[in-house]
Amino acid sequence: MHNKDNVTERVLRISGVNARRCMKCGKCSASCPSYDEMEYHPHQFVYMVESGDVEPLLNSRSIYKCLTCFACVDRCPRGVEPVKLVEAIRLEVIREQGANHLRADDVPAKIDEDVPQQLLVSAFRKYAK
């Protein structure tokens, strides 16, 4: 069996987030510009990590939809920083499962000549090891 507790623990550790501080107000999800792209929403990330239910998040495309815009961080009344959980879960997938979401071979098809370097490096940083 997949050791759920270890994953949760790792996610909490590398994110540095204290999910227990969450008071379930939903302001993160109310602020999230990618809300409608996501299957699991920021407040659910926090709740699911808090309750150790990380598995569905690891397998969800929601982790690639976060824009890392930090709106949830700035507006959270409890200082929970949900974006850090999303990031930690994505890293968990990329590092532990070696599941790169973006392969270099696929890139040329996705870009045009105006694409700034910044887009490529950011995307690789976010989606690949």
Binding site: P33, S34, E37, Y64, K65, L67, T68, C69, A71, H101, L102, V107, K110, I111, V115, L119, L120, S122, A123, K126, Y127
Partner: peptide, 18 residues
């Protein structure tokens, strides 16, 4: 608000919305 950022590569549609 965010412009869609690096998501433009993975899901151009959602970036476009932003």
């Amino acid at each position: 608000e965010c412009c869609g950022g690096y998501v433009a590569l993975d899901s151009p549609d959602s970036a476009a919305k932003q």
